[in-house]
Design a protein around this nucleic acid. Structure first.
Lengths: 342, 342
DNA sequence: TTGAAAGCGCTAACAA
DNA sequence: TTGTTAGCGCTTTCAA
C-alpha cells in the first residue's frame, strides 16, 4: 500500500494539515519543520494519490482552455481527437476542459477568445498561436498572471509560453531529403515547391531538405525553390513550366499544399510515376494521392499527440505542479507509404 | 458540474446505495427499480467519477500482473517503459501493478509465474505467451475464473485471452515490399532472409513481402527465401553464397535477426550501399547500421504502446468494466530511416 | 430489497 | 505557526 499524508504525519509527529502545507509549499509553516517533512516524505517514498487530490479539489476544479482553428482538415480532426481524449481523461479526475474553435484565425479574434477563456475561469491555456505581436504580448500577460500557456502546432518562440508541442520542421525537411536520395535515379533533377517564404515552418523544411540532399547526393541538382502560396493552380503552373523546361526533372518535394496541382500537371504531361513526389501532411487529399500511387511518400506529424499532449502538460502542471520536461516537445516525424497508413 | 450518484438518488427518490447497486449490476435490487434508475442515469448523462471510485476501492485495489521476458533489448526496454508509465498512471488511482520478468521463456516457468501472480492477488494478467498447449490451457483456466488475460507482442489466437496487442506482421511484410519496390533498380533480384519457418510472425512477414512485391514490380525476381534461424553467421553465409551466385542481386529483406551477418557479407564483398537492405525491428544494433547508412530502412513496432496498452486495457476492464474495442489491437508500423529515428 | 453510515486520501477553511 | 474538521464521489458493510 502506498504511503499517505497521514502516515507521514504520524511518523513526523505533526498533523496531516502540516504535512500538506510542507509538501505543497503552501506557506504558513515553520521552514525547518517543512524541510524535515519534505525529507521524510522523500525517504518514505511518498507519491500523492491523484484520486484523493482530485476529489478534494473538485470544489475549485482545474480548468483548461483550448483554442483551436475550426478547419475541418483530417489534421485538425486528429488534433481534436487528441484534445477530446485528454479532456475525458482529466475530466474523470474532476478537471474541466473548455474547447473554443475559431473560424478565421486572425490575431484580434484569437486574443479576444483568450480573454473570454480566462473570464470563464481557465487556469491554463493551450493555443495554436498566430505569429503576431499582440498575441505574443497576450501570452506574456497570461504567464505573468500565472496562467500558463502552451503553444502547439505553431509557436512563438520569443514569448513566455510554458512550452511548445509540434513538429521539428527542419528535421522533417531532412527526412524528405533522405527519402528523395533513396529513390532518385542517377543525376536526377529536383524541384522544391514551398508554401510561403514568410512561414517559418515552410522555410525550415526547405532548408532542411536542400541542405541534406546536397550532402547525400552530389549527382543531384536542385533546380529551383518556388513558392506556390498554398495554391494548387500556382503549383500546377510551376510544375508544368519545369517539366517542359527540364526533361530530366526526376523529383518534386512539396513542403506545404500543392499536391493536387502537381499531380494534375504530372497527369496531363504523362509523367505520373516517372517523377517522384514527396510531400508533407496527412491531409485527406494527400492520402488519396498516396493510396493511388501518384505520390511516393508522405511525411506526417502526429496530430493526435499534438492535441493530447498540450492538455495533459497543462493538467500535470496545474494539478501536480509538474513542469514539462522540455521547452520544445517535438512530435514524431512519421513516414507514410500506402502500406502503413493508419 | 458532472452528475453524481447522489443527484440521481435524489431525483429517483431512493438512496445512493440503491443507485450504486442499479448502475453496477450488483444484484440485491428490484429489477424494475434498477431499470428505471439506469434509464434515469442515462438521461441525466451520468459518468462515474474515477477519483471517487478509486478512493472507495483502495481497500481492495485492482491488481494487474505483467509477465515479460527479461531480455535487455531496446525493444523490451521500450515495452518495459510503456508498462512502467501505465503502472504509474493506474497506481496514482490506487491500483497495483506487479511486474515479473522471466529469464528463459519456457512454458513451464511461465505457467508457474502466472500461478504465482494469481496467488499474489492479481485480477488480470498481461503476458507475452509462449506458443504452447499448456500455456493456452492456463489462459483459458484464468479466463474461466474471471481473470482476464491480455496477450501482447506474440499471441495465442485459439485461447480465451481478452485481446491481443501487437504488430500485424503480414502488413509489416507488405510495408517492406512497398519500400523495396521504391528503391530497387530495374530488374533487380531480391533475397529474403527469414528467421524460423516455425514462427508465425516470420512466416507472415515473408508472405506479405513476397506477395506484395510480385504485385508491384513484375520486373523483379525473388531469388530465394532462406531461413537463418536468427543466426548471424548463417545469415552471412547465405548472403555470401547468393552474392557470388547472382551478380545482379540488388536487395535483401530480413524478417528477423541477421542484419549483422548480412552487413558483414556485404562489406567483405564490397557490396555495401550497392545492395539495398530492409529489415525489421529497432534493435540497438539495427539502429546503428541504419545510422551508418549500411542498411536503408528499418520497419519497427511501437514497443512503448505494446507495454502501455495491455495494462491500460486491463485497468479499464477491471476498474470501469470497459471491454477492449477490438480483439486484435495492432500497433503502428513505423518506417525508420536514419533521419526520423527516436 | 432498501437505507444508513463509515471511510478511502486529500485540500481548504476555520480554530487555536 | 499548527491542529482540527468537513467534505469531495464512490463502494461496502451492516442494519432494517
Amino acid at each position: 500500500m502506498a504511503v499517505t499524508l497521514q502516515q507521514i504525519a504520524e511518523v513526523a509527529g505533526v498533523s496531516r494539515g502540516t504535512v500538506d502545507r510542507a509538501l505543497n509549499n503552501r506557506g504558513r509553516i515553520n521552514p525547518e519543520v517543512a524541510d524535515n517533512i519534505r525529507k521524510l516524505a522523500n525517504k518514505m517514498g511518498y507519491q500523492p494519490n491523484r484520486a484523493g487530490r482530485a476529489l478534494a479539489m473538485s470544489k475549485m476544479p482545474v480548468t483548461i482552455g483550448v483554442l483551436i482553428q475550426a478547419a475541418k482538415t483530417p489534421f485538425m480532426e486528429g488534433v481534436l481527437n487528441g484534445v477530446i481524449e485528454a479532456k475525458a481523461e482529466v475530466e474523470s479526475l474532476g478537471a474541466r476542459v473548455l474547447i473554443k474553435t475559431i473560424n478565421d484565425m486572425d490575431a484580434t479574434k484569437a486574443i479576444e477568445e483568450m480573454q473570454n477563456l480566462k473570464e470563464e475561469g481557465c487556469n491554463g491555456l493551450a493555443i495554436v498561436p498566430v505569429d503576431d505581436e499582440y498575441m505574443k504580448n497576450m501570452i506574456d500577460k497570461f504567464a505573468e498572471e500565472d496562467i500558463p500557456v502552451v503553444t502547439f502546432n505553431s509557436d512563438i518562440e520569443e514569448s513566455k509560453r510554458l512550452c511548445f508541442v509540434g513538429q521539428d520542421t527542419f528535421r522533417s525537411g531532412k527526412v524528405a531529403a533522405g527519402l528523395m536520395a533513396e529513390i532518385l535515379p542517377e543525376s536526377g533533377k529536383v524541384l522544391v515547391i514551398s508554401g510561403y517564404p514568410t512561414i517559418y515552418g515552410h522555410r525550415n523544411r526547405t532548408k532542411g531538405f536542400t541542405r541534406e540532399l546536397k550532402n547525400l547526393r552530389n549527382d543531384i541538382k536542385i533546380l529551383d525553390i518556388q513558392y506556390a502560396f498554398d495554391d494548387d493552380q500556382m503549383a500546377e503552373k510551376i510544375t508544368k513550366g519545369m517539366i517542359s523546361e527540364y526533361n530530366d526533372l526526376a523529383g518534386i518535394y512539396i513542403t506545404a499544399s500543392g499536391v493536387h496541382g502537381v499531380c494534375n500537371a504530372l497527369e496531363e504531361q504523362g509523367m505520373l510515376n516517372k517523377i517522384k513526389v514527396i510531400s508533407n501532411d496527412l491531409t485527406e487529399q494527400n492520402i488519396r494521392y498516396l493510396e493511388e500511387g501518384k505520390i511516393n511518400f508522405l511525411i506526417g506529424q502526429d496530430s493526435y499527440e499534438q492535441g493530447y499532449q498540450p492538455v495533459m502538460l497543462l493538467f500535470d502542471k496545474l494539478f501536480d505542479s509538474k513542469e514539462p520536461e522540455k521547452e520544445f516537445i517535438y512530435t514524431e516525424i512519421v513516414i507514410k507509404t500506402k502500406y502503413n497508413l493508419v
